[in-house]
Each structure stands twice: as C-alpha cells, then as structure tokens.
C-alpha cells in the first residue's frame, strides 16, 4: 500500500517547524515516530498534503529529571523509557506502560509525544498521563504555553493543540513518598490495541488509607478518560479492603463506555475494566508501601 502524495519538509529547529506549521496550517501533519501516522497514510485514512518531519530536532530528544518532574522531550522514543534507570526506578506506572506499547520494533521508532499528540483513546500514554496529572508543553508562533493533561484531550483524535502548535515536552510530576503507580493492560496479542487498560497513580496516608488517587482508562471511551468515580471510591478508604477495591472496580466499569468490536462486547469490556482496575490499584498500593 502506497501513501497519498505529499510535500515533505525536514526543519532543523523548533522555530523553523513552527513557521512551517503557520504556513501550511491544516494541510500539514507533524511526522515524529510515524508509527500511527504512516500506517494511517498507507490505508489512506490520513492524506496530509504536507509532512513536517521533526526527527531532525535532536534537541527535543531528551528524558531528564528536573525541578520535581520528569521532562520528556517530544522526540523521546518509547525504547528510551524502557532503557531509562530513572523511569524504571521512580516512575513505575510509566515503566509498566513502556513495555506493553505496541511491540519492540515499533517502540524503537515511536515517540511518547506522538502517542499523546495523536489523542487516540486506544493509545496507552493518554491514560498514563491522565493518572500522573502530567502537563503538556506546546510551542506556537506566539510562544510557549503549558496545558494541563485534564484539558488536553478534547475529542476523538482531537487535542487542545492548535494547528500552529508543536508539542515540545511532557512533564510528569515526580511521585512523592508513599506513592505508587501501575499500568495493567489486557490485549489479544502483542501489538494490538488494548481490550482495556487501567493506569493508576496513588498516594497512601500514614494510616494506610488512600490520600490521593488518579485513574486513567484506555480504549473504553470515545476519548481518553479519567475514572473519577473509581478515584472517589478509593480516596479516604483502606485499599487492602476487598470491598473497597470492588467498589472502585465497579465504579470504573460503570463510568466507561466501551464500544463492542472484534475485541469483545461492551459488557465484556466493562468487566475487564472492573478486574484490571482492581489489579492495577493493588499493584500501585504494593509499590506505595
């Protein structure tokens, strides 16, 4: 399968890339890892007239711990998360996700920024970043701005980024003491989208109850979603109580809205979410202790 025709540009600086976005606007797509975009172009689901390849922006290829957060540059590849000691030792939720995204060959090329900018509810990072309460940094012709993840995703494949803005960085707050996170995903096979997945990041109080919790769900809603009902069912409660876990699981299953497809019926997916939520919470609690 051969993609449609397009003009290709390879800027060498962020400012040059933004100038190109300003010039080409809605006709242009940013090419980062390309692991969602190029398949969509081969199927002609996407037929952009202009591709702006940001692989040459090597100053966006970083992953570093700064001022209380993990800064992930737009050209940081998924494999870099897997190979990062900081991620593996301090960001367990992110580390869990990094090893179940697509497959190893795709992860060698795919970027974290692209996974988020694509705003696909079936992608793994949106739920992860919702659970982390991450911040997206975007740069456009009028300068840089930060977008809280809660207001980043606006619809299916739609985000708060304007056509003239480039996602340049994602910031994940460094988990504090007594914090833990986990990502639990059910997939039919490696490389397929999740049947469902649950991202949990929580903090325990001194008495062992849940002081704070954020939960994101993958591929069970028309856009990336937070399971605020499940969060409410946890906060202030003892997570070692099976009834508390079950209540959180039931809340998550009730508030998602999966579509029936070849991966299962809506009822099946809701039950998957109920079960995965309980597992993810349990794993996050173990890590927080």
């Amino acid at each position: 399968m051969i993609p449609g025709k397009f003009d290709y540009y390879a800027p060498t600086s962020v400012d040059e890339a933004i100038d190109m976005l300003v010039t080409h606007g809605s006709e242009a797509k940013i090419l980062a890892g390309g692991q969602s975009l190029i398949p969509a172009m081969r199927y002609r689901l996407a037929v952009p007239e202009v591709l702006i390849d940001i692989n040459g922006l090597t100053d966006l290829n970083y992953l570093k711990q700064v001022n209380g957060h993990l800064a992930i540059g737009a050209m940081c590849r998924e494999v870099d998360l897997e190979e990062s000691d900081v991620v593996q030792s301090q960001y367990h939720l992110l580390a869990d996700a990094a090893e179940v995204i697509a497959d190893p060959l795709v992860r060698n090329q795919a970027t974290v920024g692209g996974n988020i900018a694509h705003a696909d509810p079936a992608n793994d990072h949106p739920a992860v970043m919702l659970a982390y309460d991450a911040t997206v940094v975007a740069k456009g012709p009028s300068g840089e701005r930060t977008i809280p993840i809660d207001s980043f995703f606006t619809d299916l494949f739609e985000s708060a980024l304007s056509e003239q803005e480039l996602l340049t960085e994602i910031r994940i707050p460094t988990p504090g003491a007594n914090s833990g996170g986990a990502y639990v995903k059910l997939e039919r096979k490696v490389g397929d989208y999740a049947i469902g997945a649950v991202a949990v990041q929580l903090t325990l109080a001194a008495d062992g109850t849940v002081a704070a919790a954020r939960i994101g769900l993958t591929n069970v809603y028309y856009m990336p979603m937070r399971a605020t009902g499940a969060e409410a069912a946890l906060i202030g409660q003892d997570p070692s109580d099976e009834a508390v876990l079950e209540a959180a699981g039931i809340a998550a299953a009730a508030e998602c809205d999966p579509s029936a497809d070849l991966r299962g019926s809506a009822a099946y997916k809701r039950d998957v979410i109920r079960t995965l939520a309980k597992r993810a919470i349990t794993k996050a609690v173990e890590r927080a202790r």
């Binding site: 390309g34 398949p39 060698n108 090329q109």
Partner: peptide
Amino acid sequence: GRAIKSCTMFAVQ
C-alpha cells in the same frame, strides 16, 4: 543500530 519496520519509515527519513 535500532531494528525498525521499514514499511513504517519513508526512504527520505
């Protein structure tokens, strides 16, 4: 140095 799927990269890249 990294193994990738060559159907998912443009030659120009």
